[in-house]
Nucleic acid binder design. Structure first.
Length: 303
DNA sequence: TATCCGTGGCA
DNA sequence: TTGCCAAGGAT
């Protein structure tokens, strides 16, 4: 459908720019396949590209298909995850691999609904896989696209907001009709947000849509809403969980509780964090006072 | 809807 | 140095 506003040609401009400067990321290559795309999308959730690159290569080399991952204990996924952060993603990716073997013959499903049903796959990831792996026409909105649209189309510098149907409809209207071109445009929007229309100091001088950017034209007004809450990390349960899991990850097998006690001196918080890891399935108690990554050495093998 | 969930680079 | 921020998802 023809656009009735001033956004004709928006995708075409960004696509032309993308053709000139796009990064050669391995999961964008055709040989990556749907599984490679899915793995990359999950790893990239809240983790920068540069840190994902080596982890993705190692992961794909070890588990080139979902069935290979599904055949191993979930703890191996957690171990391979290394220090990417948010290790529950590793657990869910393993669960997703199991689900794909059980429900899809070991293949990554190609429709939005089936993708959404996979553990760890939400609105963004489902659409990204459908678009980038299967070249379908879907609006793909991550934090980069959200920011780009807020500035260029809506003329605001609003902080992070939930992505709703209205946003999906708006972005879909920007997409070219042809599915393959639309998939490229989705990648191009994300790239523009990631490289030029960045959060802190946007590089507007090098932006291909600077002449039609509503935010720039309006004088780059600052965000008016309340600043978002500080993330905070030092001293939180997340930090304690991270330290505990690092010990489990770096060990070959089960370890004594004393080794875990050494990473945090406050016992109440330490115990709460460990209980959290056990509840999440990121760790298991293999015997009284002995802990390990899940699915590893059976309890009776402890000397 | 707000909160929780890791980690590290960078301005 | 210290916040800010990063291809979100689950509850």
């Amino acid at each position: 459908m023809a656009l009735m506003d001033g956004n004709q040609g928006f995708a075409e401009i960004v696509l032309e720019w993308y053709g000139l400067v796009a990064r050669d990321l391995p999961w964008r290559r055709p040989e990556a396949g749907p599984w490679g795309v899915l793995v990359s999308e999950v790893m990239l959730q809240q983790t920068p590209v540069n840190r994902v690159l080596p982890a993705w290569e190692a992961w794909m080399a070890r588990w080139p298909v979902p069935a290979a991952l599904a055949a191993e204990p979930s703890g191996e996924a957690v171990r391979m995850w290394g220090r990417l952060g948010y290790p529950r993603r590793a657990l869910r990716l393993h669960q997703a691999a199991v689900a794909m073997v059980e429900r899809h013959g070991g293949a990554v499903p190609d429709d939005l609904e089936a993708l959404l049903a996979l553990p760890g796959v939400g609105t963004y990831t489902a659409r990204a896989v459908a678009a980038f792996a299967f070249r379908q026409r879907h609006a793909v909105i991550d934090v980069n696209v959200r920011r780009l649209i807020a500035r260029a189309v809506e003329g605001t510098a609003e902080g992070p907001t939930a992505i709703g149907r209205r946003d999906l409809a708006l972005v879909e209207d920007l997409l070219p009709e042809d599915a393959e071109t639309a998939a490229q445009a989705s990648a191009a929007f994300m790239e523009l947000g990631a490289l030029v229309c960045v959060a802190r100091t946007p590089r507007c001088a090098g932006c291909p849509v600077r002449e039609r950017c509503c935010w720039l034209i309006a004088g780059s007004p600052p965000a008016d809403g309340p600043a978002r809450k500080p993330q905070g990390y030092a001293g939180t349960d997340r930090q304690v969980r991270g330290r505990l899991l690092a010990v489990l990850r770096d060990a070959d097998g089960p370890i004594e509780a004393a080794l875990l006690d050494a990473v945090w001196d406050e016992p109440v918080q330490r115990d709460r964090a460990l209980r959290g890891l056990l509840d999440d399935g990121l760790a298991v108690a293999v015997a009284p006072g002995w802990y390990a990554l899940p699915g590893g050495v059976p309890a009776d093998s402890i000397a």
